[in-house]
């Protein structure tokens, strides 16, 4: 995403890393701490190094809140206007980086918060059609059957979810080809997520760390290396 897009998304009211809704009309964009995406060795991840249609995972905007990172091989349809379950509209500007194909979304299902853990992931982007989705190249939550299209801001295609996966706003630096997460747009489930899963998150991420903002750097994993991916 170019800086210009980012400004448009935020209604021209970007205020650094300050948290809080920025748009005057209440559109659900939240600017958050900046976190540069890095690989397993701590080196800044280059967008060009991402395999096409491979699912990657990183944590943002908190150290325990998982997101998908995808470099899509099929065209992104953007910008699109999406709505949260409570009817608030927001604009998803599309991807960033090479060909505008790099996108990121929260990996917490907006239906009942199913999400990847080290024990396994029921929600994932699948290149091959799953039985539940009946089509390829979509994000499918196997637990309750929600299907999201990452090419259109992770809008709901089928299933019980009533709002898109939360979009993670990325900035791409063309000079270094690096990616930085700077905010989220759409549903804000984080407070509920941190409360609901606090026991598991404390055990997995640390007693206080789990609710600390992902700031500075955040590690990117290949989802298949992070967790067993369940198909449905």
């Amino acid at each position: 995403m170019h800086r210009r897009d980012f400004l448009r998304l935020c209604g021209g009211a970007v205020a650094g890393a300050a948290a809080g809704p920025l748009l005057a009309d209440g559109a659900p964009f939240v600017a958050r701490t900046h976190a540069r995406l890095v690989d397993g060795e701590g080196r800044p991840l280059r967008a060009e190094a991402l395999a096409v249609d491979e699912t990657y995972l990183f944590h943002y905007p908190f150290r325990s809140t998982p997101c998908f990172l995808l470099r899509l091989g099929r065209p992104v349809r953007a910008p699109v206007t999406l709505r949260t379950a409570d009817g608030r509209a927001y604009r998803w500007p599309g991807g960033v980086g090479p060909g505008g194909a790099v996108v990121a979304f929260s990996a917490i299902c907006t239906h009942l918060m199913t999400h990847p853990t080290r024990q396994g992931s029921f929600i994932a982007f699948h290149r091959r059609p799953t039985e539940v989705a009946g089509r390829p190249y979509v994000i499918t939550c196997c637990a309750h059957g929600s299907v999201f299209d990452p090419h259109e801001g992770a809008r709901v295609l089928t299933g019980p979810a009533t709002q898109p996966l939360t979009a993670v706003v990325l900035e791409h630096d063309p000079a270094s080809d690096t990616l930085t997460a700077v905010g989220t747009a759409g549903a804000d489930l984080y407070r509920e997520f941190l409360r609901t899963f606090r026991r598991e998150l404390r055990a997995a991420f640390g007693r206080r760390e789990y609710r600390a903002p992902a700031a500075g750097e955040t590690r990117v994993w290949r989802l298949a290396d992070y967790a067993r991916v369940f198909r449905c």
């Binding site: 918060m113 396994g120 029921f122 196997c142 637990a143 369940f230």
Partner: peptide, 9 residues
């Protein structure tokens, strides 16, 4: 496994 996650959800 999804059966268990369905119920947990």
């Amino acid at each position: 496994q999804a059966t268990l996650e369905w119920a947990r959800g």
